[in-house]
Amino acid sequence: MVRVLAVCTGNVCRSPYLQVVLGSALEQAAPGGFEVTSTGTGALAGAPADPGTRVELERRGLSAHGIRARQMAAAELEASDLVLTAERSHVEQVLELSPRMLKRTFTLPEFAALLEQLSTSGPVESLRPGAAPRRTEQRWRRLPEVLSARRARLGEPAPEIADPYRRGQEAFRSMAAEIDDFVRRIVGWERSMRAEPGGGGFTQP
């Protein structure tokens, strides 16, 4: 199973939303292949997802029931195959806690942009297509290193996902729409890799 960790600040707005939406979408694309959890760099430990996040999830037929904010820990980072953050400052905090996570940590927008770029550059030998559970796991464990080597090709820094905390429901709606778009790109790539032959093309479901 591929372990993905979503990171924001308080772990009540952006990262729980990403946890639920990405987890649900990957489960549909690759049943049983992924585990998506979330944490915070300055977590409101024990708090449930913010009401604004819960409203946006409910609009999509999803729920944050049972999710409670947790403080980021080195052991959890290092047990993750991929860490996706809301902001570049979160990447810096991840690396302060665990420098060995350099090649496995990206902002969510950066990761989606690198995947899209990868999809237009042709197949990568180490990222073999296929839907078998073992093939999926191998592909995603190699993927962060492949994308990390391409960071310089992005040019301008990828955008960040603004924190909607205490900014009203419109801010949560904007956050949710941004994350939904990045999730579609990520899951579209995985679906294309599962549809042999010709894996590596970029599609949006």
Rank of each mutant, 00 (worst) to 15 (best):
I161P: 13
R191E: 03
P109G: 08
G199F: 11
P133T: 03
R173T: 11
D181F: 01
A131T: 12
F172D: 02
I161E: 00
R141Q: 08
Y165I: 06
R167I: 06
T105A: 15
T107Q: 14
F182I: 03
S119F: 06
E160I: 00
E190R: 12
R173A: 15
T120N: 08
T107S: 15
V91P: 11
V94W: 08
I186D: 00
R185Y: 03
S174L: 02
R194N: 05
R167M: 08
S192D: 13
D180F: 09
H90P: 00
K103A: 08
P99I: 14
R141F: 01
R173N: 14
P109H: 01
A177L: 04
P99V: 15
Q117M: 10
E156K: 04
P99A: 15
L114F: 15
P123E: 05
A149Q: 09
R141A: 11
L143V: 02
P123N: 11
R167Q: 05
R184W: 07
Y165L: 05
F172V: 06
L143R: 10
E170A: 12
E160H: 01
A152D: 13
R100L: 06
S148T: 07
L97C: 05
R100Y: 13
R104E: 14
M101N: 06
Q117P: 07
R191L: 04
E96H: 13
Q93D: 11
G201Q: 02
L147H: 12
Q138C: 13
R153K: 13
H90A: 00
E110N: 07
V91M: 03
G198V: 09
A162W: 00
G130L: 13
L154K: 04
E160S: 06
A149R: 13
S174Y: 00
I179Y: 00
S126W: 10
S121Y: 03
S192N: 00
L95I: 01
P159S: 07
E137W: 12
E156C: 08
A195M: 04
R128H: 12
V124A: 02
F172A: 12
V183M: 07
M175T: 05
D163G: 00
I179N: 07
L102M: 13
A177K: 01
V187C: 05
M193I: 07
R150V: 11
R173I: 10
E125A: 08
G199D: 04
G168N: 01
I179V: 12
E92D: 09
L115R: 11
H90S: 00
E116H: 13
R141E: 11
E145L: 14
G155A: 03
A158T: 09
G199L: 11
A132M: 15
S148D: 05
R134E: 07
A131R: 06
G168Y: 02
Q138G: 05
R139W: 04
E178K: 10
A171V: 00
E170G: 14
S98Y: 02
S174E: 01
A158M: 15
G198A: 08
R141P: 00
R100N: 12
D163A: 03
R151Q: 09
A158F: 04
E96F: 14
L102K: 12
E178P: 06
S192K: 04
T105E: 05
G168P: 01
L143C: 02
P157G: 09
F111H: 12
R142V: 06
A152T: 15
Q138E: 15
Q138F: 00
A149V: 08
T105F: 09
A152E: 12
D180M: 12
G200L: 04
